[in-house]
Design a binder for these strands. Structure first.
Lengths: 340, 340
DNA sequence: CAACGCCTCTGAAACGTTTCAGCCGAAGCG
DNA sequence: CGCTTCGGCTGAAACGTTTCAGAGGCGTTG
């Protein structure tokens, strides 16, 4: 090297500066600065056998819920000196697989994933290589893994109970058609609450737009508006806030007043929910905390290896009541008219 | 190897299958499948001298504008077989530097960056190593680089002219205090338009909330509401849509009708702008196209090297008029009252 | 039958680190 | 003064690929 010193010494300066004599250390550091030398992470990784990267695969990068989760993950990863590869599957199994392949080739230390409906065999393949995988916002399929989830059945209940309390007797659940277990759980919670609250399943209308997006919400709202007044719900629980925002928009566009004529409850409590011009009531999940906890579990498994005990924490969601569901409707003796 | 074949042959099967005899090829492929063999990307990269990754550093991952840009980038990168490392600087120079360091260590093929106000020396360092850097949503500082930008002076003009046409004579520009050139340009466009339209600079009120976020917008709106009626603007151009949504929310919360009492124009035209309960008029930028073009330029520079000619395309923004600015105000002979 | 060319495969070098055994000289000790 | 100890450094191996010169086998040609 320019400092007249062997590469081994340079490595020591970088990684164990205490073992190098101060004079040498300074000389080497000066040379490093002068040459603009930067370690080659690939060579480092190759030799070390483990990389300094973790993977994060989310369902929809355009959904602020996931960017908040990602923030939590990054916080923990950064503190541990790890880089995060953020990948977006767009709820498509093929994209998910492709991303997992790349992450495998990169020999990431571990993967955090919110999987698509079916748990990809690539996930199992990754695990069988010894790469830790933590499921994010998804319950574990067995005991041999970490998973950080939210009690979405409870979440669905909270939302539906809230609407029932306010006197609503015809409620819509607006979910999605992709078969995500999270959505299924929310649905189940709503069904249970409605059944207990009204003694019948007829009070519930289930709608499944194509995607869990704002556009999907608009689509579903249009369907609601198209229903005959007697069967038309007076409120909706949406499987996420994007849907809820879409519903809100479409309702307003058709002159349906929210919450007077139609109440809306969202899910996730993204920042935009509070920022909507009719602020959305929503089921809050600890978004960053979810990411942080998942990352912590992943790091523990990656560093402690066999000593690691799998954990499957389940967070409890809470209901945040805002304007979109504020009006208390009189409990109707007879069906009392409807939308706008 | 398990296929009774040298590693060189395995490499050939993977990279140049045509040069390997069909029988051998199949044997090797079978062994690969049986063993679950996956190439080690680091070793590959080390030997090849170039990685198969590019870096993307954005100002605010929570801003949907950037996730849309990222989608465009990813589209191009994926087609070229490259992975994208998405990094979030949160408009902080120290985080930006840290991310650039990591990307340098990873020897990424190139970096796309929406830099913080000051162009970091790390960017120059990266370039001097021979790593291409393309500025994203930011004008170039000189000819020796690629940059993909939007004519934000024009954008500011479009927004302000629109409001002036609708009769507004007291207009606010709601920017930010971080000194981003993009925001400065928008400001300059608004200033020029207002000066030309009203013959004076007094018609413009400039507000600089701490951050370019929904919270910042609320903060600015509160300031507007606090102004004495005679000096209070009747409309605002916001430096981005998050600010605009915050302004909208705060106005509604105070009973100020939008657009009747206060008109709002946003910037970027993120999806949430159209989805707001009072859909936002906004200056549209070609978000995905911006990302795509930047990625294409980066790849060209990375692959063609010296033959590459730097380009600095500037996209023209367009105004998308929605409800938040729809009401035509009568041109006031005298100051005609004000907010709500 | 020898020479040649072609196809397929092998073996080894190289990429830039980290790590470790070991070397050297100085200091401490008897 | 000689022996030991220890700090500080060197040199080489190893990580898993890719690449390339060249070996070996086989068919063709003169």
């Amino acid at each position: 090297m320019a400092a007249g010193v062997s590469v081994g010494t340079v490595s020591n300066v970088l990684n164990r500066p205490g073992t190098v004599a101060p004079a040498t250390r300074e000389r080497v550091q000066a040379a490093i600065a002068a040459l603009g030398f930067v370690r080659n992470e690939s060579a480092r990784h190759l030799r070390a056998g483990r990389s300094r990267t973790i993977g994060l695969v989310v369902l929809d990068i355009a959904n602020p819920f996931f960017t908040d989760v990602a923030r939590g993950v990054e916080e923990v990863a950064e503190a541990a000196g790890l880089a995060v590869m953020l990948c977006n599957s767009d709820d498509r199994a093929d994209r998910e697989s492709a991303h997992l392949d790349v992450l495998t080739e990169q020999r990431v230390q571990g993967v955090l994933i919110t999987p698509t409906a079916e748990l990809s065999p690539h996930v199992e393949a990754l695990r069988s290589r010894g790469t830790p995988v933590v499921l994010l916002d998804r319950r574990a399929t067995g005991p041999g893994q970490c998973a950080v989830a939210v009690d979405d059945v409870l979440g669905g209940r909270l939302a539906a109970d809230h609407l029932l309390e306010r006197g609503h007797r015809r409620i819509a659940f607006i979910g999605g058609s992709s078969g995500l277990p999270q959505v299924q759980e929310r649905h189940d919670g709503v069904v249970a609450a409605v059944r207990e609250g009204t003694g019948t399943d007829d009070a519930l209308t289930v709608l499944s737009p194509d995607t869990l997006t704002v556009a999907g919400g608009r689509e579903a709202a249009a369907q609601v508006i198209g229903l005959p007044a007697g069967r038309r719900p007076t409120a909706a629980v949406c499987a996420n806030d994007l849907l809820a925002l879409g519903v809100l928009q479409e309702m307003v566009r058709h002159g349906v007043r929210v919450p007077e004529d139609f109440a809306i409850v969202g899910y996730d409590d993204i920042d935009f929910a509070a920022a909507a011009a009719v602020p959305l009531t929503s089921v809050r999940k600890p978004r960053q905390e979810l990411g942080r906890r998942a990352a912590e579990l992943l790091l523990d498994e990656a560093t402690r290896g066999a000593e690691h005990v799998h954990e499957q924490p389940v967070f409890e969601p809470t209901l945040v009541v805002r304007e979109s569901s504020m009006v208390r409707r009189p409990r109707p003796a007879v069906a009392s008219g409807g939308i706008g």
